[in-house]
Design a protein around this nucleic acid. Structure first.
Lengths: 211, 211
DNA sequence: GCGCAAAAATGCACAGTATGCAAATATTGA
DNA sequence: TCAATATTTGCATACTGTGCATTTTTGCGC
């Protein structure tokens, strides 16, 4: 029910086009800078029309970060909720946020290149978790689900749980953002596991200091 | 040194134009919706050319929220740092974030109208603290200064302090955002004092639950 | 293979955002 | 009043994003 990965020519082509667009966006942004990279140039390199670009992504930043349209995001989030068994709220939400960056890549270095871009243009990360309303709303819901799996949150009033979920998402996003920035500077720590650990540590350190 | 408020005709006009633009942006966004409100219409109502709009604001959202250009923001932040004597990190950073919304208004209800808009279009808040890189960087610096006034943070390594400052800003922004959303729903709690209290409570509640 | 239906890509038009530049206009202070 | 300076404005330009109609491609039953 969650993901029947059809494999007709049509679907393979769609996946391939998507990967080419992500690839092109990252390549050009790395080469020419974020501002200088236009939808036109991206589409050109990916060998599709500029109009087609918008059939796959909402914006330039979305393409660079590999963020999907609402429906695809829903699928992905639902799958994550189904599969994960992390119970600690911080760890679960960090994993959720990280999961939306995973995407079928056309080349192996795409993940590292993304981190490079983040290092050069931190603002694309800043906007990521908060800018897109739909994304944010969907992720807040998911965070709420994750939180309710923990005893500490399970019995709270719905409204309070909702507020806590949103804030948890924000603070985990904040930690993840910083962890990714660090990772972009020092590629030795760019592995997913390291990123997660670092993000957890940052969030917990903050909580420790503020209480 | 911080603010010699010149009062020549030129300066009075500039301040007035700014207020008229903010006013027009909010009025129209409330009347027609955020998407439907164009720079053209705003400029029209404020009786300046569309080109002039961009001499005062970077974008539509900036006008609605009354966010200043980088230089003006710097002034405002510096003044806040000079004047405030709040030592609690959470309270200080919440106050800092709230302070950037203060602006000379052309009519008394502008603050309430802003909250109304936030209720109808929560996304303009979501982008506010995180979208603009310059704003974010400047605010992080300021938060760092504020944190360093607290014993718990004063002796930390610079890098750690910087990370904590950024995350504190994020979490306070998160709490403030929710507090403002609530206030927009229930105007009885729209006073600055209530907003601050509510934001503090939200942040502390989160910390309590996550530790 | 054939041909029809569905899906995807495309071209085009359009509205809006944003910036640079130079000309026009207004304000200041001597 | 005059010249220096700041501000406003018009104009040109580039880019983002969306709707719609058309064309091309793919899937599938025959």
């Amino acid at each position: 029910m969650s993901k029947p990965p059809k494999s007709g020519l049509r679907d393979r082509k769609r996946i391939d086009t998507r990967a080419r667009l992500e690839d092109a966006a990252i390549t050009l942004a790395l080469r020419d800078g974020l501002e200088q990279t236009t939808i036109h140039a991206i589409s050109d390199l990916a060998q599709v029309s500029p109009r087609t670009f918008f059939n796959y992504f909402d914006s330039k930043d979305s393409a660079i970060l590999g963020v999907r349209h609402a429906e695809l995001l829903d699928e992905q989030v639902a799958q994550f909720l189904e599969e994960t068994d992390i119970t600690d709220p911080i760890e679960a939400v960090v994993a959720l946020l990280l999961s939306i960056f995973d995407s079928p890549a056309s080349r192996p270095t795409i993940r590292e290149d993304r981190l490079d871009l983040i290092r050069r243009h931190p603002q694309i990360l800043a906007s990521q978790f908060t800018q897109v309303t739909q994304t944010r709303g969907r992720l807040t819901e998911a965070a709420e689900t994750l939180l309710s799996r923990d005893d500490r949150f399970a019995r709270l009033p719905s409204r309070e749980l909702s507020d806590l979920a949103e804030m948890t998402m924000d603070i985990c996003g904040s930690g993840l953002r910083i962890a990714m920035r660090d990772a972009a500077i020092d590629r030795a720590h760019a592995q997913t596991h390291d990123l997660e650990q670092r993000a957890h540590a940052l969030v917990r350190n903050l909580i420790g200091h503020l209480r």
